[in-house]
Design a protein around this nucleic acid. Structure first.
Length: 491
RNA sequence: GCCAAGGUGGCAGAGUCCGGCCUAACGCAGCGGCCUGCAGAGCCGCCCAUCGUCGGUUCAAAUCCGACCCUUGGCUCCA
């Protein structure tokens, strides 16, 4: 069975055919002007899992994810801290944080994380090409894309040109030939009113203007959309296989990317467009500008990477998702159960009761059914929820199997490998992640407390025994009694 | 106003592309049983939906067609 994806360009589910040996994947990344929130991390996670699945399926993946480090919102924050003297200073601060969170969430490193500020020459070259080809024009040092010069304008978002309203400030509008034309290059620095709109502190009489670069048209700054085209072409190719981005970027950002790229090269810009649904809180999307967001930093602190990933993987990439305490609690339950089953399988497999001569056909059937169902689900437009359900069925099989000895060594080993490959490699979940050294000492101490507790239980002092269990629970250590004595898990 | 996505049980959320195996998946919550001193975990079982509304096509529709209602997103910086 082969992979099929829902292509926003056509609205249809299509079978996936890469153009070359490598899958060229571009992820429309973040503008680094503020702390990233859980909405951003949702896109990253789905992009990460999609890249992981392509890789797992045997494709070589060239994964490019950009950082937009030139933007008026970034410039507006210059001076907010003493060390933030330039736009680049602010951007560096947030890029550092984003990478830190990406590591915290266990993302696989992209092939490259290009930044706009490193690609000004490529952007200028692309703008010049568009002017030469008659698709763009210069006005007072700024350059605009002429949307009427590109017949297919509006196909991604199904916009009709005559429905589109004028964008930007009045000065800019008066420079444009058509209201829907968009800037490729803007003369001068960031305007004071734009700074004022986005600033989080008072700049006084001398607002920053952001960085400017020399160009054939003026000292100025690149437009928002042109960067993605330039970086995509630089690090991938004129035609790429998959472009991933948030649903809120369909128009105008992605529409404009297509127009300027295809006008410049004459080639299809991206064969498959994947749009991720937005994260909402209550009834509105989570957004920096709405100030209703939960930062990645806070979430990592409170829930940890596995619960966050499990939360995201309970909905398909294309659907919107609602963030709530209840949803996170459910994700925590789901992850705990998966992790417990993994630990159970490992413990059973490593015990003396596991023998090579035992064969549990139910367990082994569950392993192969899990793998088949997981693969089918992921190939059906990356249906992570169904894939997670498949993994869940394996936990049932493992738990049933360890109900009685002897254990099926090979069957358990297959189950463990399945958790590790599908749950670990593909979903990026981290089983048994605690560090070895600390766990040894902790384990010994817990054993000691449990010995005391057993003595109290034997003597019938159940109140005392329960106190000890509660005290351990407060430390995050979950005690479970069984016929063979107590066992415990460190959470 | 225009464009897009979506409306499925208490919550959450698959299935809709390729109509029948959907009296509707995996869960969370809840309930009962087993196990247990108790609890937890685990196992077994149960409860709850005819799939926004109306109409149509069909032997057959959550799935196709039409109309309408509602929600969210985009049309301004936004993953």
């Amino acid at each position: 069975m082969s992979l099929s994806v829902t292509n926003s360009l056509t609205g249809e589910r299509e079978s996936f055919e890469p153009t070359g040996d490598e899958v060229l994947l571009y992820v429309c990344g973040l503008t680094v002007s503020d702390d990233p929130h859980l909405g951003h991390a949702r896109l990253w996670t789905h992009a990460d899992v999609i890249a992981r699945w392509l890789d797992y399926s045997g494709y070589d993946v060239r994964h490019v994810e950009n950082f937009t480090d030139v933007n008026e919102k970034i410039a507006a924050r210059i001076g907010e801290r003493p060390e933030w003297e330039t736009e680049a200073d602010v951007a560096r601060h947030y890029i550092t944080k984003v990478i830190e969170y990406m590591r915290g969430l266990n993302f696989r490193r992209a092939t490259v994380y290009p930044r706009v500020s490193e690609h000004i020459p490529e952007i200028i070259e692309l703008v010049a090409t568009l002017i030469d080809a008659g698709h763009a024009y210069e006005a007072n040092g700024s350059v605009y894309f002429d949307v009427t010069s590109f017949d297919d304008y509006g196909t991604l978002s199904n916009q009709q040109l005559d429905e589109l309203e004028a964008q930007g400030d009045p000065d800019e509008r008066s420079e444009k030939r058509n209201p829907a034309d968009f800037a490729l290059w803007k003369a001068g620095g960031v305007a004071p009113d734009a700074i004022a709109e986005h600033a989080k502190h008072d700049h006084g009489d001398d607002p920053p203007t952001g960085q400017t670069w020399d160009s054939p048209w003026s000292e100025g700054r690149p437009g928002w959309h042109i960067e993605c085209s330039a970086m995509s072409m630089t690090h991938l190719d004129d035609t790429i296989d998959i472009h991933i981005g948030g649903h809120d970027l369909v128009f105008p950002h992605h529409e404009n990317e297509i127009a300027q790229s295809e006008a410049a090269t004459g080639e299809t810009f991206a064969n498959y467009w994947l749009h991720t649904g937005l994260l909402e809180t209550e009834d509105e999307k989570m957004s920096s500008s709405l100030d209703n967001f939960f930062t990645v930093e806070a979430a990592l602190d409170e829930y940890g990477p596995n619960v966050i990933r499990t939360f995201y993987l309970s909905t398909e990439y294309g659907s919107k998702q609602t963030f709530s305490e209840a949803a996170m609690a459910e994700a925590e339950e789901r992850w705990d159960r998966l992790q417990r089953a993994y630990d159970t399988a490992v413990d059973a497999c490593d015990s003396v009761d596991a023998t090579a001569k035992t064969e549990d056909t139910d367990l082994r059937a569950a392993v192969s059914e899990t793998r088949e169902a997981f693969t089918a689900a992921m190939n059906a437009d990356f249906n992570v929820r169904e894939a997670m359900a498949a993994l869940r069925s394996l936990t049932d099989a493992v738990n049933r199997h360890v109900d009685s000895e002897p254990y099926d060594y090979h069957g358990l080993k297959q189950a463990i490998e399945t958790f590790e490959s599908l749950g670990g490699e593909v979903f990026g979940l981290q089983f048994g992640a605690e560090t070895a050294g600390d766990v040894d000492l902790t384990s010994d101490l817990v054993e000691l407390v449990l010995d005391v507790r057993e003595a109290e239980r034997a003597a019938g002092n159940y109140d005392r025994a329960d106190d000890l269990r509660d005290a351990l629970a407060d430390l995050g250590i979950e005690v479970q009694d069984s016929d063979d004595g107590p066992t415990f898990r460190i959470e």
